[in-house]
Every structure is written in structure tokens, then in C-alpha cells.
Design a protein around this nucleic acid. Structure first.
Lengths: 220, 220
DNA sequence: TAGATTGTTAATCGATTAACAATC
DNA sequence: TAGATTGTTAATCGATTAACAATC
């Protein structure tokens, strides 16, 4: 069904970014864009944009460009963002709460069905309209509610065990925020988000910027 | 001073990961490791590990391997994680709170000095021991306290303006969580963290996993 | 010393960019 | 039609892997 079976991950990582810019154009009422204009906007070369898109099909029209709305929809479909996904969050700490909140506001298509906790003091409470439930009941819940994605907002030490439980219960994907690399069976996709690593790389670039410019670094 | 002036970003992005694994080894009391053993642990090839490290110097010893503690310290120094950084967070919503919390627990070397808000109802409160201050006073504060890093936890629409203000006030780096790509002057480093993009890529891989396996996807 | 493992050069692989014919 | 811009092939560039001599 696909033109090629193997599409490189570098390409996949660019699609959400293309989509984000297309969404903004769409909201501004722009209805067509050329790869060249899109290049200026996104910072990717026109060649790369066309190359990337043509992994999935010819979405443009020669002499005209791409339909903003059309391309937005195509990319959404490629990523699977034209469907709805049910999530559970494990861990009701500030990070878990932020994710619930974030998903609630920004992400149509993603519905947080429940938050699971081991702390009995929090169980039964309500975060942004989502019930905090007992972690002991998570397997049953995930099975019954046919949950698609588990979001891991636990400590590092608990994360792999939670991942195993969720995989066993039948989730199709894990979105992990604990600072470990989670391992999953082949049929369960996983995305390990290491927020602190981006901070480390920021610090590296900060210090590199300053190299040899110590004198003029801070005005006043 | 550096062996090469230009080290590729791909290399830099791997360093925090190396460092994380080294830290775990260190805590377990392991004191030496070969590139081959480290390869099994991290998933990178031994060749790549040695290649990466030799961008910065010869940290190993032939016939022996690398000192875990020593390499951990070297990588920390390369990244600049042997110094302290003062941060301010802009936006005291759940995301801002989560970052304060996160930084508080996980990240020695990063001190959140203040959180800035426009909402008068929140100003004056206290989050994890950090005072919520009036956004109107941010430039003065950043200048006086010599803040290194600004963390942007605002809405998309406010983000660039906040970035401009912080850059003007003299921060050396911006860690941006708003769903836009922030632009900064050349002397201000920036890391745009797009959490939702990792969710999109997770969804792609989830659906790809399921392709042609619809029949056997969910047991029971 | 012999064995092990690094540091480093050379070979391969993959991803990006350039070029241009196809076509709207 | 002429002009513009895509889709796609070919060329280039960079990053990863393999190989091995240096050396602890």
C-alpha cells in the first residue's frame, strides 16, 4: 500500500513540524504554498520538503504548489492524527497533571480517560475533570476501556514496571517521561521523552556561544 | 583549544545520554567500562561511542577501557554541567509548575530563582519555595540577578515577545516549551522543546506497528 | 610479554541537496 | 502557450561503521 516500506525516522520527525506550520497558515486563511515559500517559513530546504512529501505521494500540483488545507490533512492522515486515542496517565504528580492539562487544551484527538496513582490520599480526586484512580486497578481498566496509549509520569525506578503492566494490559503505545529508556515488546511503540537532555544540549550551546566573547558578553 | 571547531549536533545530542548511563553505572559502583560493554548498555555501536568521545579527547586507556567516574566528569565538563545556572520561569501554569518541580528534584546545578506571571491573582504565591513575581518586573530582575536561562511556559502567542524581553535583559539561553519556534539573537542559545511532536511520532509508529496485524492485535 | 581495547584512518552507508524533465 | 513549480533522478555531503595499528 505504501510506496516504500521503509521511511526513515528523520522524515517522520519532520512531519509534525510541517503540520504545525501548515496549521498556522490554515488558520491565517492561506490556501496555497510552494515548497520554496514553505522552505523560508520552516527553515528546511525546498528540495527536502518535496523529497519528504513524495515518500507518501504526490500531494502538490506542478506550476501551482500545495494546497495548505489539503497537505495539512494528508500529513495528519499519514501520522494517524485523523483518529481518536484514549490515554491513561500513570502518576498524578505535577508532571502528570501538566500532561493532563496540556493534552486537554492543545490536543484534540487525545482523550485522557484516567490518571492512576498509588498514593491513597490522591485517589478519588479530580484533575481537570479526570478522575484519579487506584493503580492496582489499571490492568482491568486498560483492558475494558481499550486504552490506546499509556503516559508514564512516574519516578525512574517505577517506570519499567509500569511499562510492562501497560504493555501486558494491551496499550499500543507508551509515552514515557521518566528519565529512563523504557523497553517494550515489538508490538508496543514507545517514545522516551528526555526533557533534561534538551536542557543539557542548551547549556552546551550557551557556553559555546560565549567562547572567546567573555569580554563583551553581558551589556552593562 | 578544541581539537575541531565544528562538532556535529548529532554528537552533542548523544552526550547527555552517555552521561545518564554513566551516572547509573557510577551509582552502582561500577568503575570501568569498555566501549563494547557500553555499546550493549546504550544501544550505540562501540565504534560510534569511541568516535564521539575522541572529538573531545582521548579519555580511555588502551587495553583497559574507560573510567566510569572519569568519563562522567569529562562529559559533564564538555556540556558545561560542572557549573551552576540561574533560571527564571515565565508562566506559572501547570507546565511552569511542573518544570519548577522537576528542576527542583532532578537537576542539581539548575536553580530556579523566580517564576513570572501576568495574572495578579497568582503573583506573590509560592511554588515549591519559589516566589511568583510580576512579569512587569522581569527585565530588571534578570539584569540584577544575572539570570542565565529563561524558561518559557507561556501560550504560543506570548512566547516570542517573552523571548525578546529575556534576550534583551541578558539571558544566555532560552528553554522554550510553547508550541512555536522561538527566534533569538545569535548570542542567545535556544532549545525549542516540542512535546506534542513526540506524541505525533509515537502515534505514527503505533499505527505502523498495527499494519497488517489487525487480526491479532489485541488479545482477548 | 600477550591480550585487550583504545584512537584513528579508511570504507560504507544514508540522508540531503542540486538539477532538470514532466506537467499543470 | 509560457511560466511556474512539482516529482524524481543524480550528485554531494556528512555521519556511521569497519578495520587495524598503536599502546596500555
Amino acid at each position: 500500500m505504501r510506496k516504500q516500506t521503509k521511511i526513515s525516522n528523520a522524515v517522520i520527525k519532520r512531519l509534525p513540524r510541517y503540520r504545525r506550520y501548515l496549521n498556522e497558515l490554515r488558520k491565517k486563511g492561506v490556501d496555497k504554498i510552494s515548497s520554496n515559500e514553505f522552505s523560508h517559513l520552516t527553515g528546511y530546504t525546498a528540495s527536502q520538503i518535496r523529497q519528504d512529501l513524495n515518500n507518501f505521494g504526490g500531494f502538490g500540483q506542478q506550476g501551482y504548489g500545495y494546497s495548505v488545507e489539503g497537505l495539512y490533512n494528508e500529513i495528519s492522515a499519514i501520522l494517524g492524527l485523523d483518529k481518536e486515542y484514549k490515554l491513561v496517565v500513570v502518576g498524578a504528580g505535577r508532571l502528570g497533571q501538566a500532561i493532563v492539562n496540556y493534552t486537554y487544551y492543545y490536543k484534540s484527538g487525545f482523550v485522557v480517560k484516567g490518571i492512576f496513582e498509588i498514593d491513597k490520599n490522591i485517589i478519588g480526586k479530580n484533575i481537570n475533570g479526570v478522575e484519579v484512580m487506584d493503580y492496582d486497578n489499571i490492568v482491568e481498566y486498560v483492558e475494558n476501556e481499550k486504552i490506546d496509549i499509556g503516559v508514564i509520569c512516574t519516578t525512574r525506578d517505577a517506570a519499567q514496571e509500569v511499562a510492562d503492566k501497560l504493555s501486558f494490559a494491551g496499550v499500543r503505545g507508551l509515552w514515557n517521561f521518566a528519565p529512563v529508556d523504557i523497553e517494550t515488546p515489538a508490538h508496543v511503540a514507545v517514545e522516551n521523552v528526555h526533557i533534561s537532555e534538551s536542557l543539557h544540549s542548551l547549556v552546551y550551546h550557551m557556553n559555546k556561544n560565549d567562547e572567546g566573547t567573555e569580554k563583551k558578553s553581558r551589556k552593562k
